Computed example of a mutant assay.
Amino acid sequence: MTTSIYDFKVTSLNGTEASLDQYRGKVLLIVNTASRCGFTPQYQGLEELYRRYRDRGLAVLGFPCNQFGAQEPGNAEDIRSFCTVNYGVSFPMFSKIEVNGEQADPLFRYLKAQAKGILGSTAIKWNFTKFLVNRQGDVVGRYGSATKPEQLAAAIEGLLPPV
Rank of each mutant, 00 (worst) to 15 (best):
K9W: 02
T2N: 15
Y6A: 09
A154L: 10
V27H: 03
S90C: 13
L61P: 01
D138V: 15
N100G: 08
L28C: 04
F63Y: 04
N75K: 13
L13C: 06
F128Q: 04
P92K: 04
E47Q: 14
S81R: 14
L111N: 06
C37W: 00
I156P: 00
F94Y: 15
R54P: 02
Y53R: 02
T3G: 15
P149C: 03
V60L: 01
K116I: 01
L46E: 00
L107N: 11
P64S: 04
S12Q: 12
G141R: 03
F94E: 11
A146S: 14
Q151D: 14
G62T: 02
L13N: 02
E98I: 00
K148D: 09
Q114W: 07
P106G: 13
R56S: 09
Y43L: 02
E77Y: 10
K148G: 08
Y87D: 01
Y53S: 00
V99E: 02
A115M: 13
E150A: 13
L111D: 06
K26A: 11
L111E: 05
N66L: 00
K148I: 07
E17H: 08
T84Q: 15
T129S: 08
G25N: 05
I118Q: 12
K116V: 13
P161M: 12
Y53F: 15
T3D: 14
I118D: 10
Q151G: 06
A123P: 00
S95K: 15
N127V: 05
L28M: 13
Y87G: 01
I79K: 07
P41Y: 12
K130A: 03
S12L: 14
K112I: 02
E47H: 00
C65N: 04
D55E: 14
P149K: 01
I156A: 00
R56Q: 15
A115C: 10
G15F: 08
G62L: 02
V99N: 04
